[in-house]
Amino acid sequence: MKRLTNDRIWSSIDALAHRYGLSVSGLAKRSGLDPTAFNKSKRATGDGRPRWPTTESIAKVLDATGATLDDFATLASSDPGAARRNVPIPLIGLTKAGAGGFFDDGGYPVGDGWEQVQFPRVDDENAYALEVTGESMESLYREGDILIVSPNAPTQNDDRVVIRTTDGKVMARLLVRRTTNTIELASLNPDHPNFVFPLDRVEWIARIIWASQ
């Protein structure tokens, strides 16, 4: 058997999540652990040293999934990148996303109302997909296009983003600028005007990292 390196152990956890149609956050929650326990940010210390998952957390994962220790060892000895080639991403229609129950306060997908879409090479375990509906984002995005959104990716001016306001509206826009008190967003449809919101009206903002187009 190949040496069980830190990367291979974490890749085995990724592979188990993929096998059971879960994000690593979903796997952690099913195992009774903190939802962020397996996030990329938890896999190294602040000074960059590798951090290993505990034997207790691995035991809880095996118990929650029904996988055996042999399964885990086999996955850990395989190609570390294999688990990331096709990842199930939660999917929901953009117009439906504004309804309650699909996001937590931090903008992470929650609940059981999501479908799934397969997508390769996503580095954010909390990434999700929104399906464009209607014509409000033409000519940039058309009905049926899929937007992959990363709630953990940093945002900056000129990024395409998804934003949720405190009154429950979820919309895709271009981030123009952000000040200490306001945020300005340009519509993706040139026929629609720019929006300027007080920051206290913004519940969360996340970057669009890919679109099917």
Rank of each mutant, 00 (worst) to 15 (best):
S11C: 08
P151G: 02
V161C: 09
D7M: 03
T68A: 03
T55D: 14
A99K: 15
A64E: 01
L130V: 04
T179A: 09
R43Q: 15
D71Q: 12
Y108F: 15
S150W: 03
V87T: 14
R19G: 07
S11G: 08
D123Y: 06
L174C: 11
K96N: 09
S12H: 02
A153I: 12
R164I: 01
M1A: 13
Y141F: 15
G144P: 06
V202F: 06
P120T: 13
D191L: 10
P109I: 02
N86K: 10
P151S: 09
G66A: 09
A15Q: 13
N39D: 14
Y20I: 11
M171W: 08
R51T: 15
D71T: 12
V162D: 02
Q156D: 00
D124W: 04
G107N: 00
F38E: 07
T45C: 04
N157M: 02
A67R: 08
R160W: 07
G21H: 13
S78M: 09
G113M: 03
I9T: 15
G98N: 12
E203W: 09
D70H: 13
P151L: 01
I58H: 02
T133P: 01
S150D: 12
P190S: 06
P154L: 04
L140T: 15
D112K: 12
P198I: 02
K2W: 08
N152H: 10
I208N: 01
T180H: 04
D200A: 07
T74G: 13
F197N: 05
G168E: 08
D112V: 09
G48L: 07
I163Y: 01
N157V: 06
S41Q: 13
I183Y: 06
Y20P: 03
D14L: 11
E115S: 08
I146F: 06
G101P: 05
L16Y: 03
P50I: 07
I9W: 03
D14V: 06
F195T: 09
V24H: 03
L140P: 14
E203N: 10
S41Y: 14
P154M: 01
R207Y: 10
L91M: 10
A127F: 05
L33H: 00
V122D: 03
V196P: 00
P193Y: 04
A73K: 10
V170L: 01
T133E: 14
L75A: 11
A206M: 04
P151Q: 05
G48T: 09
V176E: 13
I205L: 10
V170T: 05
R201G: 04
G32M: 12
V122H: 03
R173A: 00
D124C: 04
T180V: 10
S136V: 14
L140E: 15
S77W: 10
S212F: 05
I92Y: 04
L91I: 01
L75R: 04
A129F: 12
N126K: 07
A44H: 11
T54C: 03
M137K: 06
K2Y: 12
F103E: 00
W10A: 00
M1G: 13
R164S: 02
P90L: 07
T55V: 15
T36L: 08
S139P: 15
N189K: 12
A76N: 02
A99N: 15
P90M: 11
I89M: 06
L22Q: 11
T166I: 15
G93S: 11
F103K: 00
S31D: 01
